Amino acid sequence: MTARRYTAPMPDELRHRLRAGQHPARAVPCPHCQAHAHRPCQLRKSGRPLPQPHQQRIAAWAQLTACCPDCQVTPTVPCRTPQGWPLPDHAVHARRYQEAEDTAP
């Protein structure tokens, strides 16, 4: 007879520390390839996993986690032009990427 092993759910803080070698953008789903959070991005036709996340996923992560020093918007709010319109194609200012990387766990 085989003994059963029960496992407890892992706290999010511990999970992030164990995945320290991965890009922090993997904490959010990928809008390009629809990869789930904490899963690698993949090619849409072949399904082959990619070593780095798609640029759209990195932009979504930066938008979700960091304030933008250029346009002064809070996290989750898209970056804006000087006239107040959202940037095209959900783009993110370069300084917001830097801010997200500086505050990443």
Rank of each mutant, 00 (worst) to 15 (best):
Pro82Ser: 00
Glu99Leu: 06
Ala25Glu: 05
Leu14Asp: 03
Thr2Gly: 02
Ala62His: 01
Glu13Asp: 13
Pro40Ser: 09
Asp12Val: 15
Gln56Val: 06
Met10Gly: 01
His36Ala: 14
Gly84Met: 02
Arg80Asn: 04
Arg80His: 04
Pro88Trp: 01
Pro105Trp: 13
Arg96Gln: 01
Pro40Ile: 02
Leu50Asp: 03
Cys33Val: 03
Leu64Glu: 06
Pro31Glu: 10
Ser46Asn: 09
Val28Glu: 02
Gln83Ile: 01
Pro29Glu: 01
Pro29Lys: 06
Leu18Ser: 07
Ala8Arg: 13
Val73His: 14
Arg96Ile: 04
Thr81Ala: 02
Thr81Trp: 10
Cys79Tyr: 00
Pro88Asp: 03
Pro31Gln: 05
Cys30Gln: 08
Arg57Trp: 04
Gln22Val: 15
Leu87Ala: 00
Cys79Ser: 11
Cys30Pro: 03
Ala27Gly: 09
Thr2Met: 09
Arg39Pro: 00
Leu64Tyr: 10
Met10Tyr: 02
Ala66Arg: 05
Cys41Tyr: 03
Cys33Leu: 04
Arg95Ile: 10
Ser46Gln: 12
Asp89Gly: 01
Pro53Asn: 04
Ala60Cys: 05
Leu18Gly: 04
Ala104Arg: 13
Pro40Ala: 07
His38Asn: 12
Val92Asp: 00
Arg4Tyr: 15
Glu13Gly: 10
Glu101Tyr: 12
Pro40Lys: 03
Arg15Thr: 12
Val92Asn: 00
Gly47Ala: 05
Gln52Arg: 11
Ala60Ile: 10
His54Gly: 02
Trp61Asp: 00
Trp61Gly: 04
Ala3Pro: 07
Gly47Glu: 14
Gln55Asn: 13
Cys30His: 05
Tyr97Asn: 01
His32Asn: 12
Ala60Tyr: 06
